[in-house]
Structures are given as C-alpha cells and as structure tokens.
Amino acid sequence: MSSLSKFIGQVEEPPASKRGRRKEARPGELLDAALDLFVEKGFAATRAEEVAARAGVSKGTLFLYFPSKEELFKAVVRENISGRFSEWNQEFETFEGTTAEMVRYCFQVWWDRIGATRASGITKLIVSEARNFPEIAGFYHREVIEPGEQLIRKILKRGVDRGEFHIDDFEYAMFLIIAPMIYLVMMKHSLGACVNIPIDPERYLKTQADTILRGLERRPTDPAPPKTKK
C-alpha cells in the first residue's frame, strides 16, 4: 500500500452496518452503497442491482427512491459535494482572516471534506467517463465545477480588493487553486492506488499554497488595485 493510500486509510471510515436498518434510513444507505460502487467500478460498470444488494434492499426498492442510475448518481453528487456549496459560501462571507489564510483554509477544508473521503473518486469518474455520458458530465459541470469556480473567483477578488493580491486574469488564475486538487485526487484513485508514490497530502497542499501565494502576493511595484464600485 502506498503512503498516500495509508494516509487515506487513516481518514476514511468503514461502511456502516446494515443491521437494524429503518425504512427512513434506506435512501442514505443506498447513496453510500452507490458512492462505493461508482468509485470502485465507474459509472458504466455499476449496475442498479449491485447497489441494491450492497445496501441490503431489492432492486425494486432502489427504484422507488431513484428512478434511474443517472438520478442515483446525481443524488450521490448532491449528497457528497454540490450540496455543500451553501455552507462553503457562508464560510467565505464570515471569514475574518487574510485572503492568504483563506486560500490555505480552502485547501485544508477541501481535503478534509472531499479529498480525503470516498467522494474524491467522483472526480476521476467524471474525467474518465464524461465523453461517453454527456448528460452526467453536463450535470457535474453545472452542480460542481461552475459553483466551485465562482467561489474561487470570489476568494481571489477578495485578495485583490483588499490590496493583498495582484492578479491580471482571474479566469486563469483560478486554475492555480483547482489544479493541485485535481492532481491529488487523480493520483489517489489511479497510480497511487497501486504504486508506492510517496505523497503526503497535507505537505503537498501546504507546498502548493506557499508557492501559489508567493506568486499572487501584491508587491510595492504593482499598480494599485482598481476601486470597487459600491
């Protein structure tokens, strides 16, 4: 097992026991089972009956809650990723530190809540299968990528407005934050799953943040940021 996999193993929790399951608990258990199988096998190879069996219910019961595999996948994404943007935007609004501290916090929160969890495997699934499933690719773009990019733009703009950052092109500077996250989850769910690649995720993210912030930092020779209209 690679060092990255060992680190992940310390963070993730084993699936909950299905014993004593209440009827109202079934949707959550179905989503847990679906997340496991989508990450393990991909979207195309995951069958509805497998999800039902892992959750301990019949295929018919699965379809009572989720009418298709596509709708089941969408529910998994909303439960584990896109449903959290309201919380993250609220944290942005109430954050009291510097924007550099916010960028570091952004990396750490993303790792703790997404990167170190099973949900990080959804990113690899989308990268691998988007071309064959344009509907779920479009859904993921609307529900995850666009809100994520908007939040990162807001963070960078905060830094410029406060005179902390100098950024000429927000559209491309945004990828400075996104790229390290994508690399880490792709390694985790591809080569890192079978080859000993010595990546300590927290050390990696700290190094990325240090390097990015040195590049974004406003220097005395930079032009003053434009005044924001109120």
Rank of each mutant, 00 (worst) to 15 (best):
K59V: 12
H189K: 05
D210V: 01
F165Q: 08
W111R: 14
D112Y: 08
K230E: 12
V160N: 03
F139A: 09
C106A: 13
V103I: 14
L184G: 04
R142T: 14
L35F: 01
F95D: 14
A52Q: 11
L205G: 01
E12I: 12
K154R: 07
D210P: 02
A53T: 05
I212Y: 09
P180W: 12
R218I: 05
D161S: 12
F43W: 13
A48S: 15
E12F: 00
M174V: 15
Q10N: 10
Y65C: 03
V11E: 08
V103F: 04
V11L: 14
K154E: 03
P223I: 10
A33R: 07
A75R: 12
E129D: 06
G138Q: 15
E146A: 15
T207H: 07
D161T: 09
D112G: 05
R19W: 03
D210W: 06
G60D: 04
S190L: 13
P67E: 07
T207P: 00
G138D: 11
F38N: 03
F85G: 10
Y172I: 10
F170Q: 05
E149Y: 15
G159V: 05
K188N: 09
G83C: 04
G159K: 06
Y65F: 11
I136G: 07
D161R: 11
I152K: 09
P134Q: 07
R19V: 03
T211P: 00
R131I: 06
H141N: 14
L205W: 08
G56W: 10
A25E: 15
T117P: 01
Y172K: 14
L213T: 05
A34D: 06
A193W: 02
K69T: 02
K59G: 12
I8F: 04
I178Y: 02
K6N: 07
E71G: 00
G9F: 05
Q208S: 13
N132P: 00
K59R: 15
G192P: 01
R203A: 15
V77M: 11
I114N: 08
T207Q: 14
G28M: 09
D222H: 10
T207D: 08
A52E: 11
K18T: 10
L4F: 06
R19C: 02
R26H: 02
L4T: 03
A209R: 11
I197E: 03
N132M: 12
P67F: 05
S58D: 03
Y65A: 09
A16S: 05
R158C: 03
